[in-house]
């Protein structure tokens, strides 16, 4: 059995009276792709924000590689190998793609200047961004922005990558490309947690699925079983 890379215990967060995460606990195994589904407002992105350190949690514990990172600031979590992408890509718009990745590689990846060039080329090749290397990131079309978002996260040399909805608004063909890309990322040894609404991605690409609703974990297990579970059907279909 693979080692546990990430352990989340009793994660809780409330904005005033609104509870966006309530006692969420789960473990992630090294090398797997864990999918997270749930209706809008279920607390998926909030959990990512707390894992990455953008948002302080009210209660709970996060362990990465057996190390407690609950109160570690975001930039140190990045250096420890945690990376996050956003549903709406957020490139550094005034920098070129290369510069974006260089910042990520230097600070998050801890690379030396001389090592950057080769590493970034590798990442650009993997993500199919090589031709956009010197484009200003703010000028990228949406599809490339999404790839760029992944590329920059990868440039920090993560051991675990949090992917927030890349498939929304894409054609079937484009979705397939992203599934292939995420699977390649997994093959390169990176653990992936993937939030997505597009069911196809969750059913074909993930090893395991978790379902959230109202800030609580309502189901977890093999993708087919989770989708078929009573609780999930009730939340999604109201039956």
């Amino acid at each position: 059995m693979a080692d546990t890379i990430l352990t989340v215990q009793g994660l809780s967060k409330a904005f005033g009276a609104l509870r966006v995460a309530e006692n969420v606990s789960f473990e992630v195994e090294e090398g797997e792709i864990l999918g997270i589904i749930g209706p809008n407002g279920a607390g998926k992105t909030t959990i990512f924000a707390m894992l990455a350190g953008n948002l302080p949690m009210d209660d709970g514990q996060i362990m990465l590689h057996g190390q407690d990172i609950s109160s570690t600031p975001a930039h140190e979590r990045s250096r420890l190998g945690l990376a996050r992408t956003y549903q709406v890509p957020k490139p550094f718009t005034h920098m070129t793609v290369f510069e974006n990745l260089k910042v990520a590689a230097l600070f998050g990846g801890g690379l030396e200047e001389v090592e950057c060039e080769g590493w970034i080329s590798q990442v650009l090749d993997l993500t199919g961004m090589a031709s956009a290397r010197d484009t200003l990131a703010g000028r990228l079309p949406l599809l490339l922005r999404k790839r760029h978002e992944l590329a920059r996260a990868l440039a920090t040399r993560p051991s675990i990558l949090l992917v927030d909805e890349v498939a929304a608004g894409l054609t079937d063909l484009e979705v397939d490309e992203f599934i292939a890309l995420i699977q390649e990322i997994q093959l390169s040894g990176i653990t992936v947690i993937w939030i997505e609404h597009v069911m196809k991605t969750m059913l074909t690409a993930t090893d395991r699925l978790m379902a959230l609703a109202g800030g609580r974990l309502i189901a977890s297990g093999a993708p087919q079983d989770v989708i078929a579970s009573e609780e999930v059907r009730r939340v999604y279909l109201g039956v």
Binding site: F92, T93, H94, M95, A104
Partner: peptide, 18 residues
């Protein structure tokens, strides 16, 4: 570069280790 990145997006920069 870190200054420019932080100036561009303060939320994202920490995720890049800044």
């Amino acid at each position: 570069r870190a200054i420019r990145a932080a100036s561009d997006d303060a939320e994202i920069s920490p995720l890049m280790g800044i």
